[in-house]
């Protein structure tokens, strides 16, 4: 659906050249929710703005829904933009228009007749859960409601791609969740490709299928969300993974645990996908004569299922503990054995 090849973007400022995007190549598949995470200044905002050509690349090629963006005439570009909608951090609604009129705006631009617009607005208001608020003005809405209007407006022209530019960054956590749920909902219902940028790992973990991590204009890591979560490679990725409390680099914690739990065997279980939903532990404990003690853990829900890490202390005959670990392993749960004191 979207293909970037060796895309670079630099800005020439008074203080010299600023390289915002540095040789980025990536492919985003149709129907996926693709997240780009990075700190401010990493270039993610510029990158997403290249995808509807609010910025033009300095070099490289960008293909979106079959059109090579840099080769389009202004008229062709407007056609593509109808197909690639954007949702903004600060909503960017028209204050002078009601909810219904805001949603109707992109349809007016392309000359859709009034009766058709009205029908479409009714559908969209329903879809984003704003029924009854059609005649309110943006100033009368909460942040979450404003973003719902922004999303409805973006969907009005039946786009294939939805670009979310920090769409939840101005919202409180609870509202963020409800907006993310809405995005997943429309991704499933409409088969829309969603590209979102964020600095919150929570957002990636909750709704994305794949993620790219950006630092200093480059994509430093890219992959399935579950893989990146379980095996972050770059230091920056590890930082982001820590953000949501998914304990990864545990060396310090292990030192601590060894001191506190000198007996038994401490193991770290990594759950992924459906394994987290099955009673693996209780099955294993039933068939092996050992006791266990939960030390700590973190299991969260993501777009691909449950993800998480669990630390447990297994107490029993060393041989039996070994067998128990082997049988947990056979259930496709990753096990790391962290101490050998028994």
């Amino acid at each position: 659906m979207i293909q970037l090849r060796n895309v670079a973007k630099w800005f020439d400022t008074k203080n010299g050249r600023v390289q915002a995007v540095d040789d980025v190549s990536l492919t985003i598949e149709s129907g996926e929710i693709f997240g780009i995470i990075g700190y401010s200044g990493a270039g993610k905002s510029t990158l997403i703005r290249l995808l509807n050509r609010l910025e033009s690349p300095s070099s490289g090629t960008i293909e979106v829904a079959g059109s090579e963006l840099t080769k389009l005439s202004p008229k062709e570009l407007r056609g593509v933009r109808k197909n690639v909608s954007m949702v903004f951090q600060h909503f960017n609604l028209l204050w002078s228009r009601t909810v219904a009129e805001n949603i109707s705006f992109p349809l007016e631009l392309i000359g859709v007749p009034a009766s058709e617009r009205k029908r479409r607005v009714t559908e969209l208001v329903e879809l984003v859960g704003l029924a009854g608020r059609e005649d309110s003005y943006p100033s009368q809405l909460s942040g979450g409601q404003k973003q719902r209007v922004g999303i409805a407006r973006a969907l009005a022209t039946n786009p294939e791609v939805l670009l979310c530019d920090e769409a939840t960054s101005a919202l409180d956590p609870k509202t963020t969740d409800s907006i993310l749920e809405l995005l997943v909902d429309i991704n499933k219902k409409l088969g829309l490709t969603i590209v979102l940028i964020t600095h919150e790992m929570h957002v990636i973990q909750k709704i994305c299928h794949r993620v790219a991590v950006m630092e200093a204009g480059k994509v430093v890591e890219i992959g399935q969300v579950a893989d990146v979560f379980q095996h972050p490679e770059q230091p920056i990725t590890k930082e982001f993974v820590k953000q949501i409390g998914a304990v990864d680099d545990m060396s310090l914690t292990f030192e601590h645990l060894k001191a506190r739990y000198p007996s038994g065997q401490i193991v770290k279980l990594k759950f992924l996908n459906e394994t987290a939903e099955q009673p693996i532990l209780s099955d294993v404990l039933k068939t092996h004569d050992i006791g266990f003690n939960i030390i700590g853990g973190n299991v969260t829900q993501s777009q691909v299922g449950a993800l998480g890490t669990l630390f447990i202390q297994l107490i029993g005959e060393p041989a039996e503990v070994e067998r128990a670990i082997a049988s947990i392993r056979s259930q496709a749960v990753e096990v790391e054995v962290e101490n050998d004191v028994s």
């Binding site: 609010l54 056609g79 593509v80 933009r81 109808k82 909608s85 903004f88 705006f105 992109p106 631009l109």
Partner: peptide
């Protein structure tokens, strides 16, 4: 910018 992104 929003209007521009919508093809105005």
């Amino acid at each position: 910018e929003a209007a521009e992104s919508m093809g105005a």
